[in-house]
Write a protein that binds this DNA or RNA. Structure first.
Length: 330
DNA sequence: CAAGAACTCAATCAAAGCCG
DNA sequence: CGGCTTTGATTGAGTTCTTG
């Protein structure tokens, strides 16, 4: 069996991102299934032949047309009540030099043929169920993209009154945003080794994360996260200093209102919970000569100890100035 | 003495560490 | 890996104290 990596990706996508409980690759109808061809379906097929003579050969009968069909990835999303609420039919083409089946016309006809055939197939075997029909290709040359977009429009137009299906053409952008990126994000949460695409991505990711640290764009991201960390660190440090001040000297000299109001302002500035800040103060209380008992029953945590050691010799006005300045800077 | 402010400690949650 | 325990950080709730 030929292994198509794009199909594996789509399978993972349908399972995890689109909520399909059942997904099959290379789905085809069995010749053993009894297929009752309705008049409407027959009529649709005849109209289709007339409307898209290039894409569909006149010679084929409907039965033959359907039997030849194959859907690369077929997914079903089943509702809790057991009803199939959505069928996904995806055809994928991964051509590293850009989607191509011969010349422009050939490519357009092939894609259109796929879309039309799939729509008929779904109508025949999953009649009345809402469907999404997708043709996905990670690389489509710009010149052909507009051609295919037109073909897609024609197909949509043709089916607008006849079927519950919606059609999508996923070129490079949609492929990346709708399918690839969401699946890549799953890297750490899915452990199923039978999903080839995800598995290989997990393997590759081991090494690109290592390499990233040397690359410029990644470096700027790391720089950013470092800045965020530094900012958080400063906020926490300022919060601790303020808490130390509050424990040792109370709030009056700050002139920011009563104790609650003072805490409130500080907490807002340092982006922590009011209670948390109050608790910081209580950790200091047993060591600052405060009238409160504070957290006398536990040891002072190291980071509190450090602040204590650093500022224990500061006079009130000097420490007050430090606190007020940190509040002004925000 | 009632309402609001302050205090104390328990409960909760998440990250880190451990181990079969 | 995955389940379990430990540890640390944060928040919530109930009680006590002040103040007008």
């Amino acid at each position: 069996m030929k292994i198509e990596v794009a199909e594996s990706l789509v399978r993972s996508w349908l399972r995890h991102c689109e909520g399909c409980q059942v997904v099959e690759l290379n789905w085809k109808p069995s010749p053993e299934w009894s297929l009752v061809i309705s008049k409407e379906l027959e009529a649709t097929f005849t109209d289709m032949q007339a409307r898209f003579p290039q894409a569909i050969k006149k010679t084929a009968s409907l039965g033959q047309f359907l039997r030849q069909a194959e859907i690369d990835v077929l997914g079903m999303r089943i509702a809790p009540n057991g009803k199939v609420e959505m069928v996904f039919a995806v055809d994928s083409a991964f051509h590293s030099k850009g989607l191509s089946y011969g010349n422009d016309d050939g490519t357009r006809c092939r894609v259109q043929n796929k879309l039309l055939r799939t729509a008929l197939l779904l109508d025949a075997y999953f009649h009345g169920i809402e469907a999404q029909i997708l043709f996905v290709s990670p690389k489509i040359n710009p010149g052909r993209a507009s051609l295919l977009a037109t073909a897609l429009m024609e197909t949509k137009d043709f089916f607008v009154e006849r079927s519950q299906a919606s059609f999508f053409l996923c070129g490079p952008d949609e492929f990346r945003d709708r399918i690839l990126m969401p699946v890549l994000k799953l890297k750490d949460s899915i452990a199923d080794t039978s999903e080839l695409f995800l598995r290989s991505w997990q393997l590759v990711a081991l090494f690109i994360s290592e390499e990233k640290t040397n690359e410029a764009p990644a470096a700027s991201m790391i720089q950013k996260s470092k800045e965020v960390l530094k900012q958080n660190y400063n906020e926490k440090r300022n919060a601790l200093i303020s808490a130390y001040y509050m424990s040792k000297y109370e709030h009056e000299n700050l002139h920011l209102g009563n104790q609650s109001e003072t805490f409130k302002q500080m907490a807002e500035t340092y982006r922590i919970n009011y209670r948390t800040l109050q608790n910081y103060r209580d950790y200091f209380d047993p060591h600052t000569g405060s009238h409160r008992r504070g957290w006398h029953q536990v040891d002072i945590p190291p980071q509190f100890k450090e602040i204590h050691n650093e500022f224990m010799l500061y006079e009130e006005p000097k420490l007050r100035e430090i606190v007020l300045q940190s509040l002004r800077k925000g």
